[in-house]
Design a protein around this nucleic acid. Structure first.
Length: 800
DNA sequence: CACCCTCGAGTTCA
DNA sequence: CTCGAGGGTG
C-alpha cells in the first residue's frame, strides 16, 4: 500500500504539480500561447510513441510537459480545448466511457457459502489436479473491478469490468488516482510489451466517511456506501464543471485506492505461482493486498476464511468474502474455466450481515390489489452496503410469528443481500414501553373496513377497489409499468400526480377509465406536493408552513413579462381552463406533459396481452395474458367466453378463468374497456384467425422451452422473450429439468448455475440468435458434458 | 393426491 | 428475491 502511495507522487495530482502551478503564466494570452506550444510538442511525442514506435523524448520530459500543460489548464480553464492532450488518450479523441474490449475476458467467480461447500470445492480441485495443492487466500474487496493495460510499462488504458468482455474506458479519470502508477517501476527494456493488470478500486471506509461528511456540509447528496461512491466518482465527466467542481471531483478520485489481484492477457509469465505474481506486481509498484496468505491445505484456507469472517470489520475496506485461488499457475491452465468462471478460483461469500436497529412503527400500506401490507419503519441503519429504513412484514400473521413489538430493537438482515428482512426482536433489550401492533380495521387510505377476500384468507383487503386512492394510484402505475403498457412518465410519481394532485380538486383520473382521454389541458394545471426523496415526508414551505407544491407539467413562461405586466404580477396567473395554454400563451407546456400524451397515444397500439395485464385482473400477469390473447385473439372473445372455455387455455385453470369472468361482470370494469376502446384502443391481436385457434404450432422452436438470462447482446430482456415466443417456443422464467436451453449472457447469475447443475444446455447470444432464427439443428450437437478447459481458458471471449 | 414447475405480487435501493 | 398459490403431471 505504502508503495502505491509513493509511486503516486508522479501522478498529475501531487505536490510536484502544485509547484509547477505556482508559476503559471501571468495572463490568459500568455497561457494560451504556451498551452498551444505544449500541445503541439506533446502530440508530436505521442504520435512518435504510439504510431511510429519511436521515442523522441524521455518519459520524464513527456511527463513534465503534460504536468505543465495540466497546470496551465488548471489555472486558465478557458485555454483547454476539447482535443487537448490532457483530454485525450493515445492520440484519439476523448474516450471517456467508450467501450473497451478486454484483451482477455474478465471472468467472474463461482460462489460458496459455507465451510463445507468450500472444502468440497477444494477436494474437487485436488482430485482434478491429481494431488494436493497450495491455495492463495485473499480478501474479496467490495469495490469496482478494473482492468489496467500497460504497454511497455506505461498505463495506456483503464477500463471497468463491464460485462466481462467489454468494459467502459475510464482512463482519463483513473489517471488522477494516486494509487495507480502511470508507469511501472521497471526498466523499459524489461517491461512486458503489453500486460493487463486486474484489480479492485475502492474507497477506504475512513475516506468514505470523510467524503460523506463533506457532501453533507456542501448540501450534496450522500453516498450510500463506499462502492457507490467509488463508482460514482469514476463515472463523472469533466465537461460543464466549474473549476471548483473539477477540483472537488479530482480530489475525490484521488482518494480512491487500488489493490491488484491478477494479470489478464499475459502470454509467457516469468513466474510459476499466483503468489509470485503478487510479488512481481508489487515490485512493479502496484499495490497488492496486505491481506493474503498461501495456505498449504484446504483446511488452512478454510481457517483463513473463518478468521476474517470474525474480523471483517478490522480491515480498512469493505469486504464481502474471501477469494481462494490455486496458487500454481500451471494448474490454472490445466483446470480451465467454465463459460463464466475459472475452475481454479472460488469466492467464499460471508453470510448476509445482520444488524440491530429500532423498530419505530409498523405502518400499513395498500397496494394496487387492495391488499393491506404492514411494513416496519425503522431507524435508518446500514446493512450489507446500503441504508435501510423499511422492510415488509407481509401480513399480521407474519408480524405475530416474528413476535416483534413497536419500539423493539430488532435484528435486520438482507435476504440474498438485497431485500431487507426483519428477523425478530432482541427481547433482552425491552424496557416495557413496547406495544403490540394491531392490524387496523379500516383502510389507511380511504377508511373502508378491511376484510379478507375469501373466508379464511390471511390477507386483508380494502374492498373499495374502484375509489380507494391507493388502489387507483397503484393500478395506474401498474398500467405504465414495463410488464404492462410500458408508458414512460407513468411511474410512481406520474400516477400519483394524475390521481391525487393537490390541484385540481377533482383529479384528472378518478379511475383508470379516463387514462386515454387525457389531454394537455388536463395535465397543465396539476399541482402536487413535494416529498422528500429520503423520508417520503411532505416538505413544508419554510415561510408559510404550508406544504410545498410543484407543477410538474407546466414549466416556464415563454418570455419574461415586461414593464407593467411584470410589476402587476410576480407569481403565476391563475389557471384559466378556457383560456389559451399553448401556442401563443404565456407558458410553454413542459416536455413532460407532451411526452406523456405522446406515450399514451403510442400505447394505444400495443399488443392485446399488454392491455390484459394493465387491467389488473387477479392472477393475470404477462404469461396468462399472453396465453389468453393468443388463444382468443380479442378482448370481446375473452369477455364472451365461459369459465370452462377460459380454463381450456393452456396455463389457465378454473381459478384464473373465474377471475377473468368475474372481472368482466363488474360494471365499472366494463366502463374501463368501453372508454379505452372509444379513445382508440384496439383490443385485438392483428391477423388472429379467431377464438380457439390452435397456437400456430409451426415455428422452429415448437415444443422447446428456453430461458434467457443475463445480458444477451442484440436483445433486450423482453426482446429475447419475444424472439422465443415468435419462434413458437416457450419462454420460461426459471430453469428446471424441463428447460431445453438456457441462453446466458454476461451477468447471468443463479439461473446459469442452476442450468450447469442440471446439465441443461447453455448457449450464448450468437447461438441464441441462430436458435430462434433457424432452430436447434443450426447449433449442431450438444457438446460433451465435460468440455475441456483448453477451449475456454485461453484468451478472448468464450466460445462455449 | 402429491408433487414440481411456474407465475404473480410485493418490495428495496442506487 | 422470496413467498404463496395456481396449474399440470404422474
Amino acid at each position: 500500500m505504502a508503495r502505491g502511495a509513493k509511486r503516486s507522487a508522479e501522478g498529475p495530482a501531487n505536490g510536484e504539480a502544485e509547484a509547477v502551478r505556482q508559476s503559471t503564466p501571468p495572463d490568459l494570452a500568455a497561457a494560451r500561447e504556451e498551452a498551444e506550444a505544449l500541445t503541439e510538442r506533446i502530440l508530436e511525442l505521442r504520435e512518435a510513441y504510439y504510431e511510429k514506435d519511436a521515442l523522441l523524448a524521455s518519459d520524464e520530459e513527456y511527463d513534465g510537459l503534460m504536468h505543465r500543460l495540466e497546470a496551465i489548464e488548471h489555472a486558465y480553464p478557458e485555454v483547454q480545448g476539447q482535443d487537448s492532450p490532457t483530454q485525450t488518450v493515445g492520440g484519439r479523441a476523448s474516450t471517456l466511457f467508450a467501450p473497451v474490449v478486454h484483451a482477455e475476458r474478465m471472468l467472474s467467480l463461482d460462489n460458496v457459502f459455507s465451510r463445507d461447500e468450500f472444502l468440497a470445492w477444494a477436494a474437487k480441485v485436488e482430485r482434478d489436479a491429481g494431488r494436493k495443492v497450495d491455495f492463495l487466500c485473499e480478501l474479496k474487496i467490495d469495490g469496482l473491478a478494473m482492468n489496467l493495460r500497460y504497454e511497455r510499462g506505461r498505463l495506456v488504458s483503464a477500463a471497468t469490468r463491464g460485462d466481462g468482455v467489454t468494459g467502459e474506458d475510464v482512463t482519463e479519470n483513473v489517471r488522477w488516482i494516486a494509487a495507480i502508477p502511470q508507469r511501472l517501476d521497471v526498466p523499459e527494456a524489461e517491461a512486458p510489451a503489453r500486460v493487463e493488470v486486474r484489480g479492485e478500486v475502492y474507497f477506504p471506509i475512513a475516506a468514505f466517511d470523510e467524503l460523506n461528511r463533506r457532501q453533507e456540509e456542501a448540501g450534496d447528496r450522500l453516498f450510500a456506501n463506499p462502492r457507490n461512491a467509488a463508482s460514482g466518482s469514476l463515472r463523472q465527466k469533466e465537461e460543464g464543471k466549474s473549476t471548483d467542481a473539477l477540483e472537488r471531483m479530482h480530489d475525490r478520485i484521488r482518494r480512491l485506492q487500488l489493490l491488484v489481484h491478477g494479470i489478464g492477457a499475459w502470454p509467457d509469465p516469468p513466474v510459476a505461482a499466483q503468489s509470485q505474481v503478487y510479488e512481481l506486481l508489487q515490485s512493479w509498484g502496484l499495490p497488492t493486498s496486505p491481506y493474503y496468505r498461501v495456505a498449504h491445505s484446504a483446511e488452512e484456507a478454510a481457517d483463513f476464511i473463518t478468521y476474517y469472517g470474525e474480523h471483517r470489520h478490522s480491515v480498512e475496506h469493505e469486504i464481502d468474502g474471501v477469494v481462494v485461488k490455486v496458487d500454481e499457475l500451471a494448474l490454472h491452465e490445466e483446470l480451465g474455466a467454465t463459460s463464466r468462471a475459472p475452475r481454479w478460483a472460488i469466492a467464499y461469500k460471508y453470510p448476509p450481515e445482520q444488524v440491530n436497529t429500532k423498530l419505530l412503527d409498523i405502518v400499513v400500506s395498500v397496494g394496487r390489489t387492495g391488499r393491506a401490507t404492514p411494513f416496519a419503519v425503522m431507524e435508518p441503519v446500514r446493512v450489507a452496503g446500503s441504508t435501510v429504513r423499511q422492510a415488509t412484514l407481509h401480513n399480521q400473521d407474519v408480524v405475530r410469528a416474528k413476535g416483534v413489538l413497536i419500539g423493539d430493537t430488532v435484528v435486520l438482515r438482507k435476504a440474498g443481500d438485497v431485500i431487507p428482512e426483519v428477523l425478530g426482536p432482541v427481547v433482552e433489550l425491552r424496557d416495557g414501553s413496547e406495544r403490540e401492533f394491531v392490524m387496523p380495521a379500516n383502510c389507511p387510505e380511504c377508511g373502508t373496513p378491511l376484510a379478507p377476500a375469501k373466508e379464511g384468507d390471511v390477507d386483508l383487503r380494502c374492498p373499495n377497489a374502484r375509489a380507494c386512492p391507493a388502489q387507483v394510484r397503484g393500478r395506474v402505475e401498474h398500467i405504465g409499468s414495463r410488464g404492462a403498457l410500458d408508458i414512460e412518465g407513468l411511474g410512481e410519481v406520474g400516477a400519483a400526480a394524475l390521481t391525487q394532485p393537490v390541484i385540481p380538486a377533482t383529479p384528472p383520473l378518478v379511475t383508470e377509465a379516463g387514462l386515454f382521454e387525457l389531454t394537455l389541458r388536463d395535465l397543465f394545471p396539476i399541482e402536487v406536493v413535494v416529498r422528500d426523496a429520503e423520508t417520503g415526508l411532505v416538505k413544508l414551505d419554510e415561510s408559510t408552513g404550508e406544504p410545498d407544491t410543484r407543477t410538474p407539467f407546466r414549466r416556464q413562461r415563454k418570455a419574461p413579462l415586461e414593464g407593467r405586466e411584470a410589476s402587476k404580477t410576480r407569481s403565476d396567473p391563475p389557471f384559466d381552463p378556457d383560456g389559451p395554454f399553448d401556442g401563443d400563451a404565456a407558458y410553454i407546456v413542459s416536455s413532460a406533459a407532451t411526452e406523456l400524451i405522446d406515450e399514451l397515444e403510442k400505447a394505444k397500439t400495443k399488443e392485446l396481452w399488454r392491455f390484459l395485464v394493465g387491467l389488473s385482473i387477479r392472477h393475470v400477469g404477462p404469461v396468462a395474458a399472453r396465453a389468453l390473447a393468443g388463444y382468443f385473439g380479442s378482448l370481446d372473445a375473452i369477455r364472451a367466453a365461459s369459465v370452462e372455455e377460459l380454463a381450456a387455455v393452456d396455463g389457465v385453470g378454473p381459478i384464473i378463468g373465474e377471475a377473468v369472468a368475474d372481472w368482466f361482470a363488474v360494471d365499472w370494469h366494463q366502463e374501463i374497456v368501453r372508454r379505452w376502446a372509444d379513445a382508440g384502443v384496439r383490443f385485438e391481436v392483428r391477423g388472429h384467425p379467431g377464438p380457439g385457434a390452435a397456437a400456430a404450432a409451426g415455428g422452429v422452436l415448437a415444443g422447446l422451452t428456453v430461458v434467457a438470462t443475463g445480458t444477451l447482446e442484440g436483445y433486450t430482456r423482453e426482446g429475447a422473450e419475444e424472439a422465443i415466443l415468435a419462434a413458437g417456443g416457450k419462454a420460461a422464467g426459471s430453469v428446471s429439468k424441463k428447460t431445453d436451453f438456457v441462453a446466458a449472457g454476461p451477468g447471468a447469475g443463479s439461473k446459469l448455475a442452476k442450468a450447469e447443475q442440471l446439465g441443461v444446455r447453455i448457449i450464448d447470444a450468437a447461438q441464441f440468435k441462430l436458435l430462434v432464427e433457424q432452430g436447434p439443428e443450426a447449433l449442431g450437437p450438444a457438446p460433451g458434458v465435460k468440455p475441456d478447459g483448453d477451449a475456454e481458458s485461453g484468451s478472448g471471449p468464450d466460445r462455449n
